[in-house]
Nucleic acid binder design. Structure first.
Lengths: 120, 120
DNA sequence: CAAACATATGAATAAATGTTCATTTGTTAA
DNA sequence: TTAACAAATGAACATTTATTCATATGTTTG
């Protein structure tokens, strides 16, 4: 048997097992990255506020800007991020573009987050 | 009736209704902030990898560092963030400190994230 | 007590991120 | 076609954040 060059905390077998299990269950690099990327999108209170508005109605950009009391540009930049990550979809109607939730997952994920917070 | 100084997209009543509904359903400022803060914690692939290890076992810091091939310091800094946000708890055993999931919500939230990603 | 080990932490640095401002694109109406 | 409006976008700036390095804290063993 080869010697272990990576001992730690005086544990041997535990370690081998852990490595094996983790290698089996850990998602691929790209999936981990995408997951983090997705949660990053939820990690900004402006975007969360946008989503809470979209929970209630399909709205255009300037309405969002007014309701949230922010500039059109700031909202637009954030909508772009939400759309790139498929949390939101858009539809043109004349000069306006209306945004709505892309997916009911969004509600579920935010609801889970709320649960966690309230449980303190 | 008072005049509206905040017209937009030529919509009037829609707007009033939206404002009313949003004001009723939008969480408080502090809750929005806490929510974003929580998701920010999930928004880093190092922390996600740590969580995936903890899904499988309770482990000490140096084991985490080895399994994830990162420095002890980097892992320790991230564990601190996970702990502050109550995603992880710790227990001392001699010289080592063992970390484990604080809460099954963590699994659920990550699972929802995975669902969303795989659904493309 | 001193030495060795496991973990935590503060300061510094590089990279990522949100907002603003100015401008552009696309649509409608005159 | 020109003017007016809605939305998108690029550059710039300030802030946040992850990692590294050096060091401190806390525990066990000799």
């Amino acid at each position: 048997m080869a010697e272990k060059e990576t001992e730690c905390c005086e544990s041997y077998e535990v370690h081998e097992n852990l490595l094996k299990i983790v290698n089996e269950t850990m998602p691929a690099e790209t999936e981990l990255y995408d997951l983090a990327e997705l949660f990053k999108v939820f990690g900004d209170s402006t975007r969360i506020r946008i989503l809470f508005v979209l929970f209630e109605a399909e709205v255009c950009v300037c309405d969002l800007a007014q309701v949230l009391n922010m500039t059109q540009s700031a909202i637009s930049h954030q909508l772009r991020i939400l759309k790139q990550n498929k949390l939101v979809k858009s539809r043109r109607e004349g000069k306006s573009i209306f945004y709505s939730l892309a997916d009911e997952h969004v509600r579920t994920i935010i609801a889970q987050g709320c649960d966690h917070i309230e449980e303190t």
